[in-house]
Structures are given as structure tokens and as C-alpha cells.
Design a protein around this nucleic acid. Sequence first.
DNA 1: ATGTCATATCCATAATTCATGAAGTATGGA
DNA 2: TCCATACTTCATGAATTATGGATATGACAT
Lengths: 110, 110
Amino acid sequence: MDMTSALTAFSALSQQTRLEAFRLLVTAGDAGMSAGDIAEALDVRQNTLSANLSVLLQAGLVRNQREGRVIRYFADMDGMRGMLGFLLQDCCGGRPELCQPLIEDLTCGC
Amino acid sequence: MDMTSALTAFSALSQQTRLEAFRLLVTAGDAGMSAGDIAEALDVRQNTLSANLSVLLQAGLVRNQREGRVIRYFADMDGMRGMLGFLLQDCCGGRPELCQPLIEDLTCGC
DNA sequence: ATGTCATATCCATAATTCATGAAGTATGGA
DNA sequence: TCCATACTTCATGAATTATGGATATGACAT
């Protein structure tokens, strides 16, 4: 992950509808969610959501897959990991004991 | 960390100067860096950087401390952890084995 | 073929964000 | 007290981004 991709990713997550959609997809896991279901869940117009999903796609934070008429979206965990890794790079100036606790304290609430 | 704070944090990191400044401070660790040194390192005008640092401050991603004429800035690791935790919340729908690898793969490159 | 459902794209308008110059504040030294 | 240094704040214009209506596409059913 380079600076430009990281900026695109953070920028994608810096808007409410997109952050909510992404978190919804993270929660949905492998099942993913259709564009329509996401729009309904977030109470956002279809075209607005579509535009926002395409920003997340561009940013590499979600993937999608057509299933008949429906387009199903999934959180791209690799994309997210890349972004997080970029942020943590060299965080402790070669002393892992400084940042290891930070990483270990990260939980997924489950 | 709630939605609003998370949005503020992602928004703060979605701009090049701010992302670079934050990463610089993460690398600097406990030593921190003065505003002037950051501006010089990033080749940005002082007032532009100052405005950007105040966005990071608002977002809870950095702290600062006056030392005579100099103002020293530090990355706020707790703020960062809050943001990351928000993103990972409920990522696996109660099945930690799904997201644990993601978290474990996160390294700081050291 | 035609219709309908699910979604994407286009376009205009409104809102937000950004860098900058100029001016202001705090600190320390002469 | 006066000046220089280190930063911050303010006002402004330029550029970017978000939204929603209208329209287009693609898939399935009749």
C-alpha cells in the first residue's frame, strides 16, 4: 500500500454513508449484502448509494459480484489490512515492544 | 469511539499533508516533533501545516505541548486505537477465528 | 418483444475543503 | 521595552465532493 492508495482509502471512509456501508459489510462478512439491501438499511437513495459504493470499490475496500439482477457487495479485508498496515508502518522505530500492545489490544468485539 | 469521532478521524487522515504528518509523528514516537520541524520535513508552509495539525488535534489523533516558544506534537496512539477498533467492531459476527488472523497479520514493520 | 426490477451513470446545483496571504498571540532575549 | 522567533487564526477564492432527478443498462419474466 502506498501513500496514494492509503489516501484514497481514508478519503473513502471519511463520509458517513460510506463508513456506514463499509461497517455493514464488515459485519455481514462472507455473506455480503446486495446494493439494494444496503440502501434500505442505511435509508439512502439508490443512486447516491451506488455512487458511494463505487468510491469504496475504487479504494479497494469492497468487492462486488453480480448475481442475476442483484449486485452483491463484500468488505475487502485485504484492502483494509493494507490500509491499517500503512498506518502502523515503523510506528515504534524498531522497538516492537512499544507498538505490540497497541496491536494486541485491537479486538473485533467478539 | 462513536460514528462522528470516527468520521472526523478518517477525514483528518484523508489529506496528504495530514497523513504524512501523522505518520511522521508515529515514527517519531515519544520524542514527538516540533511544528516547525514537521513543516520543514514535509516542505509545507508554516500556516498551512498549523491548520492541518489543528485538524489532527481535533480528531484526537495527535496531542501537543508547549515548550518555550516551540510547540511539540505527538501521535496519540489511544486515538488511533479507538479509530481502528471502531472499524473492526463486530467484524466477524461473533466468530473471532475469522478476524483474528487479520489482526495478527498487522505488523508495524519492525 | 415488452415490461419490470436492480443498479449504474449523467448532469446540474449545493456544500465542503484547501492553501494562502495577512494579521494576531505567546515566549524569550537584548 | 522592543524585537525576533515560533506558531496560530482569519478571510478569501479556487477546487473538489455530495446529492438527487432523469436516464441508461442489464437481467429475468411473460
